[in-house]
Simulated assay, not measured.
Amino acid sequence: MQLIGLHHVSLLTGKAERNFEFYTKILGLRLIKKTVNQDNTQSYHLFYGDAKGNPGTEITFFDIPGLGRTHPGVSSISSTSLRVKTTDSLHFWKQRLADFGISSEEITKRAGRDTLAFQDFEGTRLILVGDNGEAGIAANEPWVIEGIPTEHAILGLGPVTLTVSTADPTIKIITDVMGFRKVGSYPSLTGDFPDVLVFATGEGGTGAELHIETRPDLPKERLGRGGVHHVAFRIPNEDEYEQWFTKIKQTRLPNSGKVDRYYFKALYFREPNGILFELSTDTPGFDVDEPLETLGERLALPPFLEPKRSEIEANLRPLEI
């Protein structure tokens, strides 16, 4: 029983229309599901991913108009990476971002890989990372749009960075409970702080890593627009999901119990530093209620919400995307 890698990362946006433009028109991701927050059906939930909506490619956003900005700090998921094929792709993206008026940092080594850091219009901290033929969990099928050559398209999620005041409690959970293993470290890029520690699961590589940054100087994060709500990890099937449920229950960590999101089964829990983790099944997938060819083109509701479609649509603000 082993987690495969990253499943999705979920963030907050205050402007879904601009969010859609940024992630589809600039970054070239596919909108694979336009649905609602199942815990608050007056809020949209947008999923972006690769051409087929494969697990390990999704970056998702809850739409909360008027939401205040994020105040960065500890107990946070402080950056989200997106995989590209090579360092040449990073040079392409640096120019493309500049063409859209988006500033980026210089190409920098993180965990021995070339990376390019930038932010979206709400301050979401994003990092492009070049695979450069590295072994590990396989990349997926990119969604290619005009202006982005296939060889430079985004392939899926890369390493996620956790920023904490004290690393040991988080490390204990991800290693002893979740089965991650330490695979390296690299110097902090933000000053005289401890090295960033690198942990991997499954086959490892860019799609299966957590990076842990220790920053005792920072206050606790105040989450708002552009911030990361939670990170989810891949469970291959429902049989192993049942085993993970039993295992997490035995740890006595605060958790959600079993949650059926229809597109996947989920289990949420908070590690000791307060960061929200989710374990999600690969099955059944995002094409369970829509043809692959038309993913994301209509408001999709799981069967348990479908009887309330008229009420839900009436309480949703119009969203033209």
Rank of each mutant, 00 (worst) to 15 (best):
R96W: 04
H45A: 07
I145H: 00
T86D: 03
D120G: 09
E58Q: 13
T35M: 03
R298H: 13
F121M: 09
T283W: 09
L90N: 00
K94L: 04
H8W: 06
T150G: 02
M178H: 04
R309F: 13
L162A: 01
I64P: 00
G205Q: 09
V9C: 09
P194R: 07
G101C: 09
G49E: 00
E271H: 12
M178T: 05
A167N: 04
T150N: 12
L67N: 03
R83T: 14
G147M: 11
E311I: 10
T163A: 05
I171R: 02
K247V: 14
L31S: 13
D260F: 08
E240G: 03
H71M: 12
K220L: 13
T163E: 12
F61H: 11
Y262A: 11
P169L: 08
G207Y: 02
V228E: 00
V228K: 02
I77L: 10
R309T: 12
L116F: 09
F100Y: 15
R234F: 06
A98Q: 15
D217M: 11
G274R: 05
H230M: 07
K109E: 14
A314H: 10
F20V: 09
Y23M: 10
N315Y: 05
E151Q: 13
F286G: 00
H8C: 10
N273W: 05
D260V: 15
L155M: 11
N132P: 04
R234W: 03
F47T: 11
L97F: 01
G68S: 06
R83M: 12
E271N: 13
R317N: 06
Y48A: 03
G224H: 05
E311N: 12
K15I: 02
E240V: 15
T246S: 05
L12M: 04
R261C: 06
D63Q: 10
F62T: 13
E209P: 05
E238W: 08
H211E: 13
P284D: 03
R18V: 02
F277S: 03
S185C: 06
L189S: 04
Q119S: 07
G207W: 04
L218H: 12
D131Y: 04
F245Q: 04
S76P: 04
